[in-house]
Design a protein around this nucleic acid. Sequence first.
DNA 1: GTCTATAGCAGGATAGAC
DNA 2: GTCTATCCTGCTATAGAC
Lengths: 212, 212
Amino acid sequence: MAEAEDNTRERLLDQGERLFAEKGFSAVSVREITAAANCNLAAINYHFGSKQRLYLAVFRERWAHRARRVRQHFLETLAGKPRRGLEDVIGAMANAFLEGPMSEAERRCHIQLMQREMADPGDALNMVIEEVMRPYILEITDMVRPHLNGFVDERRLRLSVLSILGVILYFFLARPAVSRVVEQEYDSRFKPELVSHITAFSLHGIHSLNQE
Amino acid sequence: MAEAEDNTRERLLDQGERLFAEKGFSAVSVREITAAANCNLAAINYHFGSKQRLYLAVFRERWAHRARRVRQHFLETLAGKPRRGLEDVIGAMANAFLEGPMSEAERRCHIQLMQREMADPGDALNMVIEEVMRPYILEITDMVRPHLNGFVDERRLRLSVLSILGVILYFFLARPAVSRVVEQEYDSRFKPELVSHITAFSLHGIHSLNQE
DNA sequence: GTCTATAGCAGGATAGAC
DNA sequence: GTCTATCCTGCTATAGAC
């Protein structure tokens, strides 16, 4: 994310991602992106062919890479706890997204881009689902399963892991609404409280699989 | 939502809402809206002053009204169960959003519009939060509180109710991702399964408030 | 209230010099 | 690879006839 001065192409990816996340694809102009990247108006078409293809490149060359870093952070957090419980898995998940390896600006960028792609499904969404979300959820599912008693319906297990992700993303995306409902700013005191709430809520939620 | 033939203004609100929800504010042109509403290009400016003010009118005159219907449905579902448990409250909540008084098209429209406004906070978001979300969440909080044992921290209680809403909205908005992860289409067999999962997960989740 | 016509501008894309 | 200049399409908004 740091101003990569080495070449125009990189700067276009950086600024393109930032602006697409901030305002959405249609609301950003190539003029705005090239100005922010401090290069010529024609550069997007030269390097990527079109505005649309810059958008796709952002997902392939920036977003996907960052998603791998988030997963890596999640795995490393868990590696530090060899006798891990279910709570550790869920805590690491919430942590990776809400306090993980990204700066605040990166996190906002990353999650907003995904949200926008969900709202307007395009070619990028396939990549995001198949190469990132699906394998990630299934990986976590495998980590969660051994902690549950007896037979667990696979579909309900996946729904539960998805629900956890849903809660995490919601508290990030609905920030203004959450803030006003609990009458509390998203400051550095509130964030750990949020992570601990999400972990506790989800931990009990997932135990609904045991008790029926 | 049904093609209101009475006057141009109403048709503009209907089609405007549909298209804004489908594509987002910037991606829709007034030409597209007026064509869909089967009226003249100049009609938006005559009736609302500008495209932006049509967007605001959609929230004030359509979205907010529909939100009241959802709340009404929720209250009526509960009114039928005088000795209601916590499960009934949560079930009614999930039901109001996912199978409630809206047609599928209306539901999609309603929830997508809110999602887009969350992504690009503008004047409409204030109205949505203050006049709809906040009172609704607080009302549900009051219904949930008596079912919990002993002293409950108010902020954590509100976070829990927000989490439930988060799970519900997530399963609606992340539909393509959910579908691919659980390998299951969103058909009429799957939906009740989803509602029952959300209810069970959230019910256990909210009991995290009791057990600490 | 609804129409046509158009002003006035911003958009993405490209050609061709350097 | 980067620049300028420009094409052309599409946009919002408005003026003014009906």
